[in-house]
């Protein structure tokens, strides 16, 4: 499902003396449907950078990032938008939404974007919020004012609302209590079971051991000059 081949990346800072900072070189790996793979490596090794390249958020300099039928490294914006809508989910560490939109709408949005009927989408959002123990009195409020843990759970509900065939998880269990952590791990296991290909970053060793099939050490892709 996910096929990364010889991907490299560097940042050129035009306004700081055109400094060129290579951050990744020769990254290659595959993730099969139903498989969950963890990116590991010391802080700054490029886990998040690689994740962002998989999502099309950072431009890859060279190589191929095949997700389903689409090569994210060379696709037009329109193709990436389609991919994100129907095939590639992303649970980031940060919630970025319009300030006024209610929590239940935030969670339902990915479903509405794929053409779900509004009442069906809201019903599904409510099921997810219930499962993640987000109190019902918060559903009609904007999540922008929520605590870190609450925001994280809203983010997860949103990321799992639609059954994407490929899923990127950035620290999904960070700032969660034991109960909710268990719920999230169950949800990841369920996604694997339905055949999703998952790439994740987990600082939580136990969680990683529980849901991940293997680890990829990103340090191997760190350019020598930097390492």
């Amino acid at each position: 499902m996910i096929n990364v081949e010889n991907v490299s990346k560097s940042f050129t800072l035009h306004n700081q003396g055109a400094a060129r900072i290579p951050v990744m070189h020769g990254a290659s790996f595959q993730v099969a449907p139903g498989e969950c793979v963890a990116l590991v490596g010391v802080s700054g090794a490029g886990k998040s950078t690689l994740m962002r390249m998989l999502y099309g958020n950072y431009l890859a300099q060279s190589g191929r990032i095949q997700i389903g039928e689409v090569d994210v490294a060379s696709a037009a914006p329109r193709e990436i938008l389609q991919l994100r809508r129907y095939s590639l989910g992303y649970v980031s560490q940060f919630l970025r939404v319009v300030p006024r939109v209610s929590t239940v709408d935030v969670v339902a949005e990915p479903l509405l974007a794929t053409g779900w009927d509004r009442s069906d989408a809201l019903a599904r959002a409510e099921i997810l919020l219930t499962r993640l123990n987000v109190p019902e009195r918060l559903w009609s409020l904007s999540p922008t004012t929520f605590s870190g843990g609450e925001q994280q759970r809203v983010n997860i509900a949103r990321g799992f609302a639609y059954d994407y065939p490929a899923l990127l998880l950035d620290e999904p269990t960070a700032s969660l209590d034991a109960t909710n952590r268990a719920v999230v791990l169950e949800m990841i296991a369920a996604a694997k079971a339905r055949g999703a290909a998952i790439v994740g970053i987990f600082h939580d060793d136990a969680a990683r051991a529980q849901v991940c099939d293997r680890e990829i050490d990103v340090t191997a892709f760190t350019p020598k000059a930097v390492a």
């Binding site: 035009h14 306004n15 099309g56 958020n57 950072y58 914006p77 938008l81």
Partner: peptide
């Protein structure tokens, strides 16, 4: 030109980098 989040988070051109920063 590009995807909005890509241009804002990984700007390539000198001017865009200046704008974003």
């Amino acid at each position: 030109t590009g995807l909005t989040d890509q241009v804002l988070d990984d700007p390539q051109h000198r001017y865009t980098q200046l704008l974003v920063s």
